Computed example of a mutant assay.
Amino acid sequence: MKSAVLVIDMTNDFLTGALKNDRALKTIQPISDLLTKARAQGTPVVYVSDEHYKEDHELKIWGDHSMKGTWGGQITDELAPKSGDYSFEKRTYSAFFETGLDTLLRELNVDNVILTGVVTNICIQHSAADACLRGYEITVPKETTEALSDEDYDYALNYIKTMYGAKIVSVDEAL
């Protein structure tokens, strides 16, 4: 099985900006550790982050966040992409919707996606759904994702496991 690590929405606005989530801050180090291990093993690292335009429908729900070309839309410095990593912009919850991600993963012969980032019950869950429907295996290292509440976090991980057959593992077990 060939894996790729997906880093979803680890932008300034989701961590300390417009949609600040103190709970998400604790995911930075585990994600960093996983990325170091992935890169050392030659596992592809793919960033997929909100980069919204003012017309995007999602802004009616959540307000302005991760706007294209702004500080808030940039990936946090602690997890900045490295040479050889891949990056895609998204304008909806799913990392797969109209981003080119699926095409890249197929070109890389990836059959397992390791989902990291925020928010567990929104973008991670929708990305897991689209990954499953495209035939990918799904792994979620539990320390690398976070929601706005314990209830949302637990519900989403259980849903992803039950509905999409995801493996919920520790960072050490992910690769």
Score class of each variant (00 low, 15 high):
residue 42 G to Y: 11
residue 57 H to P: 00
residue 83 S to I: 09
residue 76 T to I: 15
residue 75 I to A: 03
residue 80 A to F: 00
residue 56 D to G: 11
residue 45 V to M: 08
residue 103 T to Y: 14
residue 85 D to S: 10
residue 97 F to N: 10
residue 83 S to P: 05
residue 63 G to H: 04
residue 83 S to F: 01
residue 78 E to H: 02
residue 102 D to E: 15
residue 89 E to A: 15
residue 81 P to I: 01
residue 95 A to M: 12
residue 88 F to W: 13
residue 83 S to Y: 03
residue 96 F to M: 08
residue 90 K to C: 13
residue 48 V to F: 12
residue 80 A to D: 00
residue 56 D to T: 10
residue 93 Y to W: 14
residue 106 R to H: 13
residue 55 E to W: 05
residue 106 R to F: 07
residue 97 F to Y: 15
residue 39 R to D: 07
residue 67 M to W: 03
residue 44 P to L: 07
residue 88 F to M: 13
residue 100 G to N: 11
residue 61 I to M: 00
residue 58 E to M: 12
residue 41 Q to M: 14
residue 85 D to V: 07
residue 97 F to E: 10
residue 40 A to M: 12
residue 42 G to N: 11
residue 107 E to G: 09
residue 54 K to M: 10
residue 97 F to D: 11
residue 84 G to W: 07
residue 103 T to H: 13
residue 51 E to T: 08
residue 82 K to E: 08
residue 92 T to G: 05
residue 87 S to N: 06
residue 39 R to Y: 05
residue 38 A to V: 11
residue 62 W to G: 02
residue 74 Q to C: 04
residue 63 G to R: 02
residue 54 K to F: 10
residue 82 K to S: 04
residue 45 V to S: 07
residue 38 A to T: 11
residue 56 D to R: 09
residue 88 F to H: 12
residue 59 L to Q: 06
residue 78 E to K: 09
residue 100 G to Q: 10
residue 57 H to N: 07
residue 60 K to W: 00
residue 71 W to F: 03
residue 53 Y to M: 05
residue 71 W to I: 04
residue 103 T to V: 15
residue 100 G to P: 08
residue 102 D to I: 02
residue 93 Y to E: 12
residue 55 E to R: 06
residue 62 W to Y: 14
residue 75 I to W: 01
residue 52 H to C: 02
residue 44 P to F: 06
residue 84 G to T: 09
residue 53 Y to H: 10
residue 93 Y to P: 01
residue 64 D to M: 12
residue 93 Y to R: 15
residue 54 K to C: 01
residue 65 H to T: 01
residue 107 E to W: 06
residue 44 P to M: 09
residue 42 G to L: 10
residue 42 G to M: 11
residue 81 P to T: 02
residue 80 A to H: 00
residue 59 L to M: 06
residue 107 E to C: 09
residue 39 R to M: 06
residue 72 G to W: 01
residue 101 L to M: 04
residue 89 E to Q: 14
residue 38 A to P: 09
residue 57 H to V: 05
residue 87 S to P: 00
residue 64 D to S: 14
residue 86 Y to W: 15
residue 100 G to Y: 10
residue 67 M to E: 02
residue 50 D to P: 08
residue 40 A to R: 13
residue 99 T to I: 10
residue 90 K to L: 13
residue 97 F to R: 14
residue 93 Y to F: 15
residue 38 A to Y: 11
residue 72 G to Q: 01
residue 53 Y to A: 06
residue 65 H to F: 04
residue 101 L to W: 04
residue 38 A to K: 07
residue 85 D to A: 09
residue 85 D to F: 08
residue 106 R to L: 11
residue 70 T to Q: 02
residue 85 D to W: 08
residue 50 D to M: 09
residue 102 D to M: 02
residue 97 F to H: 14
residue 107 E to K: 15
residue 68 K to G: 00
residue 50 D to Y: 13
residue 41 Q to Y: 04
residue 105 L to I: 05
residue 45 V to L: 09
residue 103 T to L: 14
residue 98 E to R: 15
residue 70 T to E: 03
residue 50 D to W: 12
residue 105 L to S: 04
residue 51 E to N: 03
residue 85 D to G: 08
residue 54 K to P: 10
residue 63 G to K: 02
residue 48 V to P: 11
residue 71 W to D: 07
residue 85 D to C: 09
residue 77 D to R: 11
residue 102 D to K: 12
residue 68 K to P: 00
residue 64 D to W: 04
residue 82 K to R: 08
residue 105 L to Q: 05
residue 65 H to N: 03
residue 105 L to T: 04
residue 46 V to N: 07
residue 48 V to G: 12
residue 44 P to G: 08
residue 91 R to K: 14
residue 100 G to H: 10
